[in-house]
């Protein structure tokens, strides 16, 4: 039988791994953290297999008559990128493995990290506005275009936060946000001459570019985690397609209604 201590070690390690995976850490880091936590609690044999959608951990106390225990944790729900949590769990695992922190204290700390709130919504909107304005400027937009992009970026990001709250799947989220950004920039530009809605729209769409998935996909392939790498690559392509179709459909409707693109 698995004893109580082993079970709580296993639960702690898997919880740390789950939180890392959900907040945008590499697969390598997830597996490494779980293994280190188990090893720090003197579990002699640990084998971890982590993917984007589930973590499998096997432990064995190494005695002749001991049983092998396997724990499977399904990771469901979308994952977001919250690098503060990744950083905090990283620090936690370093501290846990080098000090004699108790397991109860460890799980308390983990739940504390889990409860870290993202930045306030106005700040996030300001971030989105900054992205759209400065990328608009980088892609040949003028100053007035950038000012329009600030507004459009903030509105469309607010809508995406609202959609995320209602747990809409990520394809539809990208599609709707991209379509709304496209409608808004077409409407802003229609009455005026000389405004660059291409630059505006590129700036706003940069907000939704899946930077986390792109980076993690490459790093997973590099570390030999082919399954996770492929899953993230698929995610990147699906998001890219959702953004392109969202803006594309609006542009073709606009075109067929007689607008100029």
């Amino acid at each position: 039988m698995i004893d109580k201590k082993q079970k709580s070690i296993l639960l702690l390690a898997v919880r740390a791994g789950e939180l890392l995976m959900k907040n945008g850490a590499e697969t390598y880091r997830v597996e490494d953290t779980i293994e280190r936590i188990c090893k720090a609690c003197k579990v002699p044999y640990v084998e971890v297999f982590a993917t984007q959608t589930g973590i499998f951990v096997t432990i064995d106390s190494g005695r002749e008559d001991s049983d092998v225990f396997t724990y499977v944790r399904r990771i469901s729900g979308g994952n977001s990128t919250d690098l503060k949590k990744v950083s905090e769990i990283n620090k936690f695992s370093r501290e846990f493995t080098t000090s004699d922190m108790s397991i109860e204290e460890g799980s308390r700390r983990l739940e504390e990290i889990h409860g870290i709130k993202p930045l306030s919504i106005p700040l996030q909107l300001a971030g989105a506005a900054m992205i759209s304005a400065f990328f608009c400027l980088l892609f040949e937009g003028g100053l007035i275009d950038a000012l329009c992009a600030v507004l459009i970026g903030a509105i469309s990001y607010a809508i995406s936060l609202l959609l995320a709250k209602h747990a809409l799947n990520y394809f539809m989220k990208g599609f709707i946000c991209s379509a709304i950004a496209c409608i808004l920039s077409l409407l802003v530009c229609a009455p005026f001459h000389g405004l660059q809605y291409h630059s505006m729209l590129i700036g706003v769409l940069m907000i939704y570019v899946p930077g986390g998935a792109i980076t993690l996909c490459i790093r997973d392939f590099l570390a030999g985690h082919m399954v996770s790498g492929l899953a993230k690559m698929a995610e990147v392509f699906i998001i890219a397609i959702s953004l392109a179709t969202g803006a594309g459909i609006v542009l073709s409707i606009w075109n067929s209604l007689g607008g100029v693109i």
Binding site: L83, Q124, A126, G127, A128, M130, I131, I207, G211
Partner: peptide, 8 residues
């Protein structure tokens, strides 16, 4: 910097 904000 904007991305750093929304990625927390």
């Amino acid at each position: 910097f904007g991305f750093a904000i929304i990625f927390n």
